[in-house]
Amino acid sequence: MGMIEIKDLHKSYQMGSNSLHVLKGINFSVAPGELVAIMGSSGSGKSTLLNILGMLDEANEGSYVLDGVPIKNLNETKAAQYRNKFLGFIFQSFNLINYKSAAENVALPLYYQRMPRKERQEKALKYLEQVGLKEWATHLPSELSGGQKQRVAIARAMAAEPKVLLADEPTGALDSKTSYEVMDLIQKINDAGNTILVVTHEPDIADMCKRIVHLKDGVIVEDKKVKQVRAADYV
């Protein structure tokens, strides 16, 4: 039983009278504990696929089952609930809330789980410690470097203990040294058993995953297991 099962997924964007067919029948599944890189040239539909997996967007056709739960015809309230329970997001541009401290940002998904305040704060600190930023808990995002921001974002994605982490070019805005630090973190999280999907167009980042899926013109053209390169060797 896979963690993610998608079958014959189609997505097109309507722009006036033209429609742009972006995903043209995607089939793949991800087993628990996998670390998958999704690669492909710009405009190949990587983000589109990830957003559908993240329930931020909806497919036009096809089925999507997440850990045995069929994802279809969700209203926005239900979708929000599923995102909160099942998924953690890591974005290229970090997407931290700029007037909240690092700890408050990490605690936010827990707030939407209605977790009591005290517990929430403890948990946020625990995850900040895991990403090595405990001392920065009270700092605002504007006081952090890019790499630190992304680590806060990873802590936030982890805080709700989701089934799957979805990262869209998590290293896209970072230099190679910080990129490897972030990948090291992601690998460690994966080592602990978490399922992670990473969209990237950098081959060295993809090599740090356990499996690479290649998208081209809306279909998967290659799907192979690779020998994982440990980021720690480069840090």
Partner: peptide, 12 residues
């Protein structure tokens, strides 16, 4: 948008 990605319901 960020809040909703993290699980904020429209009602909230």
């Amino acid at each position: 948008g960020i809040r909703r990605a993290l699980g904020a319901s429209p009602f909230s």
